[in-house]
Amino acid sequence: MLSDEDFKAVFGMTRSAFANLPLWKQQNLKKEKGLF
Rank of each mutant, 00 (worst) to 15 (best):
M1W: 15
M1T: 12
M1S: 12
M1A: 10
M1Q: 12
M1G: 12
M1R: 10
M1H: 13
M1D: 14
M1F: 14
M1L: 13
L2K: 04
L2T: 06
L2Q: 06
L2M: 13
L2I: 09
L2V: 08
L2F: 10
L2H: 06
L2E: 07
S3R: 05
S3N: 10
S3P: 04
S3D: 11
S3F: 04
S3H: 04
S3A: 06
S3K: 06
S3W: 04
S3Q: 04
S3M: 04
D4G: 03
D4I: 03
D4T: 03
D4Q: 04
D4F: 03
D4M: 04
D4K: 02
D4N: 05
E5A: 10
E5Y: 07
E5F: 07
E5P: 05
E5R: 06
E5L: 11
E5W: 07
E5K: 08
D6H: 09
D6V: 07
D6K: 09
D6Q: 13
D6R: 07
D6T: 07
D6Y: 09
D6E: 14
D6W: 15
F7A: 00
F7E: 00
F7M: 02
F7K: 00
F7L: 01
F7W: 07
F7I: 02
K8F: 15
K8R: 10
K8W: 14
K8C: 10
K8T: 09
K8Y: 15
K8M: 14
K8N: 10
K8I: 13
A9V: 12
A9R: 15
A9C: 09
A9I: 14
A9Y: 11
A9W: 07
A9T: 13
A9S: 10
V10Q: 08
V10N: 05
V10G: 02
V10S: 05
V10I: 15
V10P: 00
V10H: 12
V10F: 12
V10D: 03
V10M: 14
F11K: 00
F11R: 00
F11Q: 00
F11P: 00
F11I: 04
F11A: 02
F11W: 07
G12N: 05
G12H: 04
G12A: 03
G12D: 05
G12Q: 05
G12K: 03
G12I: 00
G12P: 00
M13V: 06
M13K: 01
M13Q: 02
M13F: 06
M13R: 01
M13N: 00
M13I: 07
M13C: 05
M13A: 01
T14Q: 03
T14H: 03
T14K: 02
T14R: 01
T14N: 06
T14L: 04
T14P: 05
T14M: 03
T14G: 06
T14W: 02
T14A: 05
T14E: 08
R15E: 07
R15A: 06
R15D: 03
R15H: 05
R15N: 03
R15Q: 07
S16A: 14
S16Q: 14
S16Y: 10
S16H: 11
S16T: 13
S16N: 10
S16I: 12
S16M: 12
S16V: 12
A17R: 05
A17Y: 05
A17M: 10
A17T: 08
A17C: 12
A17V: 09
A17I: 06
A17G: 04
A17K: 06
A17Q: 14
F18V: 02
F18T: 15
F18H: 01
F18A: 01
F18D: 01
F18R: 00
F18M: 03
F18P: 00
F18Y: 06
F18I: 02
F18L: 03
F18E: 01
A19V: 08
A19P: 01
A19K: 10
A19S: 10
A19Y: 15
A19L: 14
A19E: 15
A19H: 12
N20T: 11
N20W: 04
N20P: 00
N20C: 10
N20R: 12
N20H: 10
N20L: 14
N20G: 09
N20S: 14
N20M: 13
L21H: 00
L21T: 01
L21M: 06
L21K: 00
L21I: 02
L21G: 00
P22S: 04
P22F: 01
P22D: 05
P22K: 01
P22M: 03
P22L: 02
P22V: 02
P22N: 02
P22W: 02
L23R: 11
L23G: 07
L23V: 12
L23W: 13
L23N: 07
L23S: 09
L23P: 11
W24D: 08
W24E: 10
W24G: 04
W24N: 06
W24I: 07
W24Y: 08
W24M: 05
W24P: 04
W24S: 07
W24T: 06
K25I: 14
K25M: 15
K25S: 07
K25Q: 14
K25W: 08
K25E: 15
K25R: 09
K25V: 14
K25D: 09
K25A: 13
K25F: 11
Q26K: 05
Q26P: 00
Q26E: 00
Q26W: 00
Q26H: 01
Q26N: 01
Q26M: 02
Q26S: 02
Q26T: 00
Q26V: 01
Q26R: 05
Q26F: 01
Q27I: 15
Q27V: 14
Q27F: 11
Q27M: 11
Q27Y: 13
Q27L: 14
Q27G: 06
Q27R: 13
Q27T: 11
Q27H: 13
Q27W: 09
N28D: 14
N28S: 14
N28M: 15
N28E: 15
N28R: 14
N28L: 15
N28A: 15
N28K: 15
N28V: 14
N28Q: 15
L29Q: 02
L29Y: 06
L29K: 02
L29M: 09
L29F: 04
L29T: 03
L29V: 06
L29A: 03
L29I: 10
K30V: 14
K30P: 02
K30W: 15
K30C: 15
K30A: 14
K30H: 09
K30Q: 13
K30N: 09
K30M: 15
K30F: 15
K30Y: 15
K31D: 09
K31W: 12
K31Y: 11
K31P: 03
K31C: 13
K31I: 13
K31Q: 11
K31R: 11
K31T: 10
K31N: 09
K31M: 10
E32D: 09
E32Y: 07
E32R: 08
E32F: 07
E32S: 11
E32Q: 12
E32K: 09
E32N: 08
E32P: 03
K33F: 08
K33C: 06
K33W: 04
K33S: 10
K33L: 13
K33R: 08
K33V: 11
K33G: 05
K33Q: 07
K33M: 08
G34I: 08
G34M: 10
G34N: 10
G34Y: 08
G34T: 06
G34D: 08
L35M: 13
L35I: 12
L35E: 09
L35P: 07
L35G: 10
L35Y: 15
L35F: 14
L35T: 08
L35H: 10
F36R: 12
F36L: 14
F36T: 13
F36Q: 11
F36E: 13
F36G: 13
F36N: 12
F36D: 13
F36I: 13
F36Y: 11
F36S: 12
